[in-house]
């Protein structure tokens, strides 16, 4: 495992925990898209079914379990514990527009036509677009709390670091996984606009708000 990959995993973990802490401490999930969080829970579940079939390393297993546990906890906080604070009427992205095409694509373009592999592929495709309901919500309300911006930034950094990890692996190990790379590129591009806003506004101490 190279440094990019490790830092990528850490920043992914940081994003997930940051969001959990934000909701827990403020006792509120205002401004957070429950739909994106459900999609991420689906992504982790579909991808990490190999926990039952394949042992890779202690690190790998622990991270997978933590990701899944945190992601389901977040969904539970939003839809149950702090349901009253959930901004459902601003969280209106139609998730079927993401789930259906990515599911079809996973059936058509995959490494191997087996149930686990199709689910893995589906999770990769879905992850690349799962943040859209959240970005849509930010654009609809025109702003995001600073901590939500940090969350989105850490999440974007994670996939960007993975891109460097793939360049590294291709160069030094001759390894590449085209499905992961293309989906990872799409995912990173979706964050670009947000990165720009984050650097020009949030880092200068301003709240992220979009021009009207």
């Amino acid at each position: 495992m190279n440094l990019f990959r490790f830092l990528g995993d850490l920043s992914h973990l940081l994003a997930i925990i940051l969001l959990l802490l934000k909701i827990w401490k403020s006792r509120s999930c205002a401004g957070i898209s429950g739909k994106s969080q459900v999609l991420f829970a689906v992504v982790f579940t579909a991808r990490y079914l190999d926990l039952f079939t394949n042992y890779i390393s202690l690190y790998n297993t622990c991270m997978k379990v933590v990701y899944i546990a945190c992601s389901f906890t977040t969904v539970w906080l939003i839809y149950s514990k702090f349901k009253a604070t959930y901004d459902g009427n601003h969280d209106t992205f139609r998730v079927e527009f993401l789930v259906v095409p990515t599911a079809i694509l996973a059936f058509l373009v995959n490494h191997d036509f087996t149930p686990l592999e199709i689910l893995w592929t589906f999770s990769i495709y879905l992850e690349s677009v799962a943040i859209l309901p959240q970005l849509f919500m930010v654009s609809k309300t025109g702003e995001a709390e600073t901590i939500t911006s940090h969350y989105l930034f850490a999440l974007g950094v994670y996939r960007t670091l993975y891109l460097f990890n793939w360049i590294w692996r291709y160069h030094f190990e001759g390894f590449f996984d085209l499905i992961a790379i293309v989906a990872g590129l799409v995912q990173t591009v979706l964050y670009c606009d947000f990165f720009y806003l984050y650097i020009t506004k949030v880092l200068k101490g301003k709240k992220l708000s979009l021009p009207a």
């Binding site: 995993d9 992914h12 991808r47 592999e117």
Partner: peptide
């Protein structure tokens, strides 16, 4: 070829 199907990344 094996490496492709053992997804060792998260």
């Amino acid at each position: 070829q094996d490496t492709i199907f053992t997804h060792d990344e998260l």
